[in-house]
């Protein structure tokens, strides 16, 4: 929801970044305020996922210019784990499998890392068990998944639900969903979207990165940005998605028509 005069959560000014010496982000600017849901759309290779990795501090990406502040502080002063503890959460496009580490242990370690950072009480196994069982319902997850190794042998949908479960547990100020809808069947998409919708509040924000308009039927954004060539080229309301669906991305880009999947 768009709220008058709400706090700026994320401010990105003229951001450039490269990976392996290739510049991917070329002057990206964006502002996200508390309560808002933003969607970034765009063809493959436009830099959408790079943007999410740069915000969360992936070591392979180098920031070459611009400024990013998160809740008023310089984001680049923070280590990846401190960005997470301060309230940035990335739902991975491809969540990693961690054999031998139970999902329950992983969730508890993650939760307690944040509690400790905030000077709040860390939960022991019993108290955490109570908390996580309440949280499971948000993504309709079977408790049996807690005893399995993190993401190991999970289906695509189960992995994404596990990501949203982590988001529910960590209660981020900014939740970034990197192609969370890709590869999901419609039932899984409904569960995931419903989970995200339960987590939105006036004091947090969501940034969805997606290739498909379909997700926006289930999580309705306040703003849609179209990304092309490493920058945002168009911004509009939710109705922009329909135009894009009908007319393709080339409609909003200055350049030659972009072949989807070319990169």
């Amino acid at each position: 929801m768009i709220i008058e005069n709400s706090d700026v959560i994320l401010s990105v000014k003229d951001l450039s970044a490269e990976v392996d010496g290739i510049e991917i982000l070329k002057g990206l600017s964006l502002e996200i305020k508390a309560g808002e849901i933003h969607a970034i759309m765009g063809p493959n290779g436009s830099g959408k996922s790079t943007f999410s990795k740069v915000l969360t501090g992936h070591p392979a990406y180098t920031v070459t210019g611009g400024e990013v502040t998160f809740k008023g502080q310089n984001l680049f002063d923070l280590e990846p784990q401190d960005r997470a503890r301060e309230g940035i959460f990335l739902s991975f496009q491809y969540p990693l499998e961690i054999p031998g580490v139970s999902n329950l242990d992983f969730l508890r370690v993650a939760y307690n890392s944040k509690q400790k950072y905030k000077g709040l009480e860390e939960l022991d196994a019993f108290d955490f068990d109570d908390l996580i069982r309440e949280t499971l319902d948000i993504v309709k997850m079977n408790p049996a998944f807690l005893d399995r190794s993190v993401n190991e042998g999970f289906s695509g949908g189960e992995k994404k639900r596990n990501e949203i479960l982590q988001m529910a547990l960590l209660e981020p100020t900014l939740g970034i969903l990197d192609e969370t809808d890709s590869g999901l069947d419609i039932d899984a998409l409904r569960i995931v979207a419903n989970g995200v919708n339960q987590l939105t509040r006036p004091d947090n924000a969501v940034l969805m990165i997606t290739h498909y308009q379909r997700l926006l039927d289930y999580i309705v954004p306040d703003y849609i940005h179209v990304m092309e060539g490493g920058r945002i080229v168009t911004t509009g309301g939710k109705e922009l998605a329909l135009e894009l669906e009908e007319r393709g991305y080339e409609w909003v880009t200055d350049k030659e028509p972009v072949e989807v999947g070319a990169r």
Partner: peptide, 10 residues
Amino acid sequence: FYLQSRGLDR
């Protein structure tokens, strides 16, 4: 990085 992004230090 996946674990760091969940708040664990290296």
